[in-house]
Design a protein around this nucleic acid. Structure first.
Lengths: 244, 244
DNA sequence: TAGTGGTCTAGACCACAAA
DNA sequence: TTGTGGTCTAGACCACTAA
């Protein structure tokens, strides 16, 4: 049973957020279920209504729950558009789309940073980068080519630690180097696929591709990874919701 | 001078939000400026601190302001990524990018809904649509082709009311039919430009294009407009921020 | 030390949906 | 009518930054 620890350094609302978040992830509160009323939550956790509401507001903003006046608070259907809001990896992305992901490593080596990449990662030209090129598949059909560039100084030996056809880079960064992504900045474009890329994906030369470039920042707000993804235009699209 | 009207049907926080929003838009509170302290805002508008904070929280979530503990609250730099979060029109989008927008109308007529469009707009196949095709330019260079389809029943006579090379459709819908966009749902893809589209844009046939399809909903949550935009891949890209 | 935002409490009354 | 979430108040103490 989760309780609020008044002696913890974490604020009450943060602890409560984590508790609720876990219940939703566990399906203890399942999709469509009504949460306990605000009054019940106050009593269960011994906090004031404003604190409960503060937490529910945050979960509402994240799209995890929704409220119906006079009816209650409910667990929301997970949205599919998170690839444009939350950092998710290829595996999670494909599973959201009901596809089975797999990968193969095409290249894995240390290289010096080009001027362009050095600028994006705020490092010196020529600094050592860990470079990984992977082919991504969905239901065993090629979906995209991913080129990852890591500042090697922050994750020495990264490339030889795991087989990245099976292990997620995100997990390796977290477990081995205690680096967690805080946020990322990305640009989305349409390009004509290069001869090399289209050949790897088994599509005609110059086929249109959705091209994403992303810079990811660690919890200390340091840019660590530069990522280029070329998605097949015929298989991949992005969805999102806009507000007024 | 803006005051809170206690007799208004609008809640206090909503009025306060509108007041603050207007001050930011007017540059009365300019970018980087420190806002009055929470205490001052309480006194100026005669509301409690929680209400002030509630409003500042909402503005923070929208990215319009940011807070620095012990220092104050400040007006944020406008972000350029709003095209992936907020509904904005071509004019606003180009101005955000520092470009000068212009338009020309290529076609304007009533047509029956195809099955595909009828499904997206939740109407019967063959129902009358107002169709408008426009060429969009930035700094007098072609940027995109926009095809708009409106359910004509909700905006009879739309096409003959204004010259849509100059007047925004959004403004016409609001002023003439009292229809305001509540939200929209869109899909982003990379496609090869058709012979017709590329010719209109003055680029090689089959050039890659960023293709956006959007369904926009009125304040009553009724789908009113279906929009297809083909952006030149060499001139247009989307930026956004992701969180963990 | 003074002043800021960050967190939290204990109440109050209102608006809406369902029985 | 009952019970829900929506709005609002008045206060308290804490944590951080700058002088």
């Amino acid at each position: 049973m989760d309780k609020i620890n008044r002696l913890s350094k974490l604020p009450v609302y943060q602890q409560l957020y984590d508790i609720f978040r876990k219940k939703i992830d566990n399906r203890e509160w399942d999709i469509g279920d009504m949460l306990p009323t605000e009054k019940e939550l106050m009593e269960t956790y011994g906090v004031s209504r404003n604190t409960v509401r503060d937490v529910l507001d945050k979960l509402t903003n994240k799209g995890l729950i929704y409220r119906k006046r006079a009816l209650g608070t409910f667990v929301a259907q997970p949205t599919v558009e998170q690839g444009l809001v939350r950092i998710i990896n290829f595996t999670e992305d494909m599973e959201n789309r009901g596809l089975t992901p797999s990968s193969s490593v095409l290249s894995s080596k240390l290289i010096p940073a080009s001027l362009e990449i050095a600028n994006k990662l705020q490092i010196a030209e020529g600094e050592e980068l860990a470079y990984l090129r992977r082919l991504r598949l969905a239901n065993n059909e090629p979906m995209s080519i991913e080129d990852s560039f890591f500042v090697h100084r922050y994750c020495p030996g990264l490339l030889s630690r795991h087989d990245y056809a099976a292990v997620s880079l995100r997990k390796a960064m977290a477990d081995d180097y205690n680096i967690h992504w805080l946020h990322a900045s990305q640009v989305i474009r349409a390009i004509a696929g290069s001869r090399e890329t289209t050949k790897l994906l088994g599509i005609p030369t110059h086929s249109p591709m959705l091209f994403i470039e992303r810079i990811s920042y660690s919890q200390d707000d340091i840019p660590i990874e530069f990522l280029q993804i070329s998605y097949r235009g015929d298989r991949y699209s992005l969805h999102n919701e806009l507000n007024a």
